[in-house]
């Protein structure tokens, strides 16, 4: 199974994402923002960082990168897509996911180990977890506050599309403590904290992020 990891100018976490894909048991395929083909990948990860310098708005310019046209098409046909942090912002700007990520409510860039609760295990990226399972993975961003209108929020909650929530105090002002959401079909997932930085105890706070990368194998085998 081939999982593409996209590098935009300014992406930081592509190496760790590729490493996590390999640890999860798949082959990591490097994709470049200017690529005109997806190299026959079965799934795509948009990693964290500051793509295009975060100019204008986070993810606003990346959305128009040549490779994103292909990602949007493939996502529409059901290909699993995971956006982490800046990747989540790109997915929102691409309208693959609803809502937007705005400046943290206290204005600080946060970098810490964060407990989250997995609340939906039916998506392509969360099936290795159990509902209610709590995991600790790094959270590191300045614009991680998930915002949307009341109607969208009710829809996300009503359809069970909140896939993870922050545990304890709200770190960034996100509505309903939302740390991650999925599209209606469950193949596109956006997550603010970083599972790719928590795949082994040597380099991460835990190995509890690995489940996102083993889930995708289950999704393909089905």
């Amino acid at each position: 199974m081939r999982v593409g990891v996209i590098t935009f100018p300014g992406t930081l976490d592509d190496r760790d994402a590729a490493r996590a894909v390999i640890a999860g048991g798949a082959e990591a395929v490097a994709l470049w923002h200017a690529d005109a083909d997806l190299k026959n990948v079965d799934a795509v990860i948009l990693p964290g960082g500051f793509s295009y310098g975060d100019y204008l708005r986070c993810g606003a310019i990346s959305r128009f990168a040549p490779v994103m046209k292909l990602v949007i098409e493939a996502a529409g046909k059901g290909m699993p897509v995971l956006g982490i942090c800046n990747g989540f912002q790109v997915l929102c700007e691409s309208h693959l996911l609803p809502g937007a990520l705005t400046r943290n409510s206290d204005l600080h860039f946060l970098c810490r180990d964060q407990e989250i609760e997995i609340t939906n295990t039916q998506t392509a990226w969360t099936s290795s977890y159990s509902v209610g399972q709590k995991i600790v993975i790094p959270l590191k961003n300045g614009e991680g506050s998930f915002q949307c209108d009341d109607e969208t929020l009710a829809q996300l909650e009503g359809e069970g599309r909140v896939i993870a929530r922050y545990v304890g105090q709200n770190p960034n002002g996100s509505r309903n403590l939302i740390a991650g959401i999925s599209n209606a079909r469950g193949n596109v997932v956006g997550l603010m904290p970083h599972p790719e930085h928590a795949i082994d105890a040597l380099t991460g706070p835990t190995a509890e992020g690995l489940g996102f990368f083993t889930s995708i194998l289950n999704a393909m085998v089905k």
Partner: peptide, 13 residues
């Protein structure tokens, strides 16, 4: 401009 209902932490600061 941010919509009126969207929290503006920079404006608040």
């Amino acid at each position: 401009m941010l919509k009126p209902e969207i929290l503006d932490p920079q404006g608040n600061a």
